[in-house]
Structure formats: structure tokens, C-alpha cells
Design a protein around this nucleic acid. Structure first.
Lengths: 333, 333
DNA sequence: TGAAGTTCTGAAAACGTTTGCAGATAACGT
DNA sequence: ACGTTATCTGCAAACGTTTTCAGAACTTCA
């Protein structure tokens, strides 16, 4: 069912059908109605491929996201998609593994799609990826991370300050020996670690590598394993700061298995405030990123970038919020 | 950077470039190498839109999934995507709300994309949606549900038997008053309810509407609220069967808030075995769907359907597995 | 030497759209 | 009645590919 079929049925040319479908110029009301009726009746929808060929835009923005995306990222892209739709853009997802091979495959796909813009939800490892983005002069927005040395717009929170606040919360409760459950790859891991150290330092506490565990990734499973390792070698811990909620959940599991109570024996803080935090038992104390505002802003920036409305378009650092629930308490006397 | 640019650079016609890129027919080795070098150097990738116009296929299959997709569905589509990629297909996601309007919007998008096939991960409410799928004679696979009255292939587990097994597990532990936390919309809710009733009946226990709570959807939040309602009006409960893990998680949260212990005071069983079940404290007893096999089979079916290899292509009912963790125990004497 | 392949290459058409241009008709003001 | 403008419509080109067809150049073989 193509535009020509509709044209034939309506006894007009394809141009005319195109004009009514796209609401362009003058079309005699009578003919317009006839065509509209035919469109509705046949369920005709223009072929995107053909359309994008002549218009040289796809009205589609690509979202690149790790294939291991967590619930925070999942919610984030739903929000972004929603707002992008409001601006008239479709969304295409690209799930990529933390492997050069996967990233290059993703890059090929991106190129083939001829997208109008690209939103990166989290980083990639291969420099060629960013090089292409720069060279292509495509609209790009980095969401939840930044690469200040590259010239991309970025939407993010101050990771360092967030981690600092989380750690400080534990210190204020009276904790002195606070373990760190860190992640890998992504730059926020390093940034959150910096914040953890800063809080320690501000309180006059020494940073001790012996109570730091660096997990290979960010899953609950790795949080569980990391905490096991930590528990076996770091004695005297009364609290743990996990750099993501998933790591925290895994850590709590290990504590449960070891017969330790949270927050009775150990306090735990996470980061991100994924949905499930509020429904855990105990509820997880964590650092909330303003996910709705961030997603909205990301879509707005992208839309402005595509439209070439560069006034007022700039990177934004959002504030975070420490959400205190039940997984943190004063250390046992 | 189009095929013509490459052709010009190589001093040949576009046809020849096309032939080497697609590895067709004879091309003089010397020229082939020259073109290949140019392709690598320029990073040329064929334009999908143009390609799909002439080939009349997109090598893309659409996956329709509720925008509230849970972790089970999230994992499922990752698996499907992975296998589909192995068959040479791209994947395009369509997140749809349980609202006619959203579904119709999705339908328009599907039509515009000219997909090679469509995988439905969960149901839609608007009959017109299925009507289009039927009328279009597109390859369609329903994954995790079935519509026997329609002629689509389907991959699913026996929901009824799964729920029956979950309930029976509670009965065998000695529970007699087992609440039900049910969901809405999707047909599996009704099927799981039937299984619950069947187990009760088989054990000679009466079905009691008074200890059934029907949540408006399937989120942890709704599980929490549903359990609150159940707790206030259904006295004497010693166990609850929640029709999804998320409902179960919410239910456990309510129990925690009420100062009741799981499984000490109440046993809880879920359904699906989403990733997090094993990391909760206590770990959630649940019914596992063989998600990897189901995803693989779905991709295989789709691939066969598109290729027209209809031999051996048929719906499959997969077995489930009761995973007993720590959220269920004998009732307190 | 010539006929019959085999290997290689390019011109052109096609896919489904949109749009500039030009032509046709209608409406209007004088 | 006539020029001017406003309204309407279709033709044809273009977008970036793939593929059929035909023809050219080279091999092979009698």
C-alpha cells in the first residue's frame, strides 16, 4: 500500500496525496477529504525509508546504552524516549557491550541508520567511537556522564559530591571504618571513589585500601561477591558505601547470608535510587539522581541541537539528593 | 559518503562497489582490494533506507513490549536480540502502554518501518492491533503468552501449572489459608489464578474471594498496596502467592513495615524468577521460566518464519521450575 | 583462426517518497 | 472584458541503493 495506490484510488497524483498527508499548501477540500478517508480506510502510513531518503533526515535519534543496563538506566531511557516523542522524534536503541568489537558493530549500525542525533547513556571504551561522533558532526548528548576533553554536551550530576554526601552521612552517624564497594569501566566509579575519599579526609579519617573492594562490574552478583571478599579480609567494618544500588543489594545479601543484620551490624548506602530501593527490607539509603529532570533536559537539548537552535543549549550539572531509608543507623555501641 | 563517492574515488561504477560490498559475482581482485581499502578508509556503510527500498526488506524485526517492562521481560528481549543478531537481523523496540491510544501509535510506527517480522512480548488490549498483524501476513511470534483463537505462533510456559505448583508447594508445607495477590490486563494473571484455585481444590481447600487481592498492575508498589489491603481484611493468613515477583517484593515490604517476618510469620511465593530474587533477603521462592531457551526459540521461529522455512515451525510450551529459596517455610505451629 | 565460454563492468531501471516548477483554473478588482 | 492574484494540480527529478541486461575483454579449446 503505497502513496501511488492511494493516488490511484482517489484519482489524483501522488503529489497531491503527499500534500494532504503532510498538510502542505492548498488542496481542494473535497479532494482532501476523499484522500483522508482513503488513508484511514486503507491504514496507509508513509514508508519511513523512502521518506528519509528524500528528506535526508530520519526523525530518529539513537540511544546507546550498555546491554547490562540497570534499572536506573532503564527508567532514564523511558523518560528520554517519552520526551523525544513529544518533540516528534522516534527512538532507536543500541545495546552495546563493554567490548571494542561490540562497540564497533554498534558504530556500523549507527552509520547505516543515518540518525538525526545520538544520545549516549553511559560510556564506551573504544576511542574511535567518540572520534566518529565528533567527525560526523552529528548532534550528540552524553547523559549521566561527561567527557570534558571532548566537546559534547553532557547532562549529569556531580558524582563526586554525591558520593561525598553518602559517605558523610555514615560518618555523621558515627561510623569510622567504612568499607567501599566500587565498580569498574565507567568514569563515575572513579569519581564516586574520589568523593568517598574526600569525605573521609574531611573527617580526618585515613583512606585504607584494605577496606576497598573493586568489583569487575556493577551487578548485584558482583556486589555479593565483593562484600564476601571484603567481609573476609576487612575486620571491624561498621558500614559500607556501595557505588551503585545494585552493588549495595548484593552486599546486603552477603550480610544476610553471614547472619549479620542491616543496619544493626552494618550500615549500607547505595547510589542512584533505582525503583526497587524503596521496596527492599530494609529500604536502602541512597543518593538519588533527579532522573526525570535529567531525562527531560536530555531530550530538550537533543531537540534543540537538531533544530540548530543553539542559544541556551549547554551542559548541565544536576543536584542530587540523599535519601535516608532504613539501611543506615548509628553503629552498635 | 555514498556508494557513488566510493565509486568515483575508485574510478569504477556504483554497481561494482555494490558488488564488492555485498560480495556478489566476479570482480577483478585488484579492483576489489582497491574498493575494500577505500571502504575501510572512509568508514563507508550502506544506507539502510536506500537498501531496504530496493530489496523490499529491512532485515529488522520489531519487538513490542510494555513500557512498564519488568526485569524478566528486559532479560528476555536481550536474549532474543542476541539470537536475532546471530541470524543477521537488527532489532527495533516498541514500548507500548496499556492504552488503546498508545497501541495505535505503536501500530502506525510499525507500519512505517516496514519490518520483516514482529515479536510480541506481552499482550495489547486493542483488537485492531492483532487484526493488522493477521491482515498484514507478517511473520509474528507471541512470546510469553498465547492467543489460541488467533493463528500466531507462540512461545510460553504453562502458566496454570506453574501457579499450581507454587500454591501446592505452600500447601505441602502445611499452609491452609493462602492469600492471592493477582494482577490485571494480561491473560497470564487469569491463568495463574486458575492454577492457584486448582491447587486449592486438589487439596480440598475452599477458594475464598476474601483472601484475594487484584492489583491494578504488576509493580512492587502495587504489591505493597495490595498486601496492605489484604493484611487489613484477611485475617489468619499464613502464606501468600503473588502472581509476579515484583508483586511479591512489594508484599514482603508491607510485611516488613508491619513488623511481620518472612517466612516466620508469612510465607511468600512469586512467579518469573527475575534476577533479583536470589539477592533479596530472604531469597524469594518462585517459579522460574526457562528464559534462555524461550528467547532462543523465539528468535529461531522468527528467523524460520521470515525465511519461509515452515517445516518444524510450531508453537512451544516450555516447562517451568519451582525454585525454593528462603521466603517459604512451614507455618508457625 | 574462430567459436564458445568465462570473467568482468557499467548503464539504467526500480523502490516510495517530497518538492520545485509550471501550467490550469477560479476569484477578484477595475 | 481583462489583467492580476490566489488557489489548485501534476510532471519530473532526486535521494542511495541493488540488480538485470547487455556488452566488452579475456580464456579456452578445437
Amino acid at each position: 500500500m503505497s502513496i501511488k495506490d492511494i493516488a490511484k484510488l482517489a484519482g489524483v497524483s501522488a503529489s497531491t496525496v503527499s500534500r494532504v498527508v503532510n498538510q502542505r499548501q492548498y488542496v481542494k477540500p473535497e479532494i482532501r477529504e476523499r484522500i483522508l478517508a482513503l488513508v484511514k480506510q486503507t491504514g496507509y502510513v508513509p514508508n519511513n525509508a523512502a521518506r528519509s531518503m528524500v528528506l535526508k533526515r530520519t526523525f530518529t535519534v539513537g540511544i546507546v546504552i550498555p546491554d547490562t543496563f540497570n534499572m536506573f538506566q532503564r527508567e532514564l531511557f523511558s523518560i528520554i524516549e517519552h520526551h523525544l516523542e513529544g518533540f516528534g522524534y522516534r527512538t532507536s536503541f543500541f545495546f552495546v557491550k563493554w567490548e571494542p568489537e561490540s562497540e564497533m558493530k554498534c558504530l556500523r549500525k549507527l552509520k547505516g541508520e543515518k540518525l538525526d542525533g545520538i544520545i549516549m547513556i553511559h560510556e564506551v571504551s573504544h576511542p574511535e567511537f567518540y572520534e566518529y561522533l565528533t567527525a560526523s558532526s552529528l548532534p550528540v548528548v552524553l547523559c549521566t556522564f561527561d567527557r570534558p576533553e571532548l566537546e559534547f554536551l553532557s547532562i549529569h550530576v556531580n558524582e563526586e559530591e554525591g558520593a561525598r554526601a553518602a559517605t558523610q552521612h555514615l560518618i555523621e552517624l558515627g561510623h569510622r571504618r567504612i568499607g567501599l564497594l566500587s565498580g569498574s569501566y565507567f568514569s563515575f566509579a572513579a569519581q564516586r571513589t574520589v568523593g568517598y575519599k574526600a569525605a573521609l579526609e574531611a573527617a580526618g579519617l585515613a583512606f585504607d585500601e584494605g577496606i576497598v573492594e573493586r568489583a569487575p562490574s556493577y551487578s548485584a552478583e558482583e556486589g555479593r561477591d565483593g562484600m564476601r571478599s571484603l567481609l573476609s579480609r576487612a575486620k571491624g567494618l561498621t558500614a559500607v558505601f556501595a557505588e551503585t544500588d545494585e552493588l549495595a543489594i548484593g552486599a546486603i545479601r552477603t550480610l544476610f547470608e553471614a547472619g549479620l543484620s542491616v543496619p544493626g551490624d552494618l550500615s549500607v548506602v547505595g547510589f542512584d535510587d533505582i525503583d526497587i530501593c524503596a521496596f527492599l527490607s530494609p529500604g536502602l539509603t541512597t543518593v538519588r539522581q533527579p532522573i526525570h529532570e535529567m531525562g527531560k533536559k536530555t531530550a530538550e537539548l537533543m531537540s534543540a541541537l537538531i533544530a540548530g537552535e543553539l542559544a541556551g543549549v549547554d551542559s548541565t550539572t544536576f543536584g542530587f539528593e540523599l535519601i535516608v531509608r532504613e539501611s543506615t543507623a548509628r553503629p552498635r555501641a
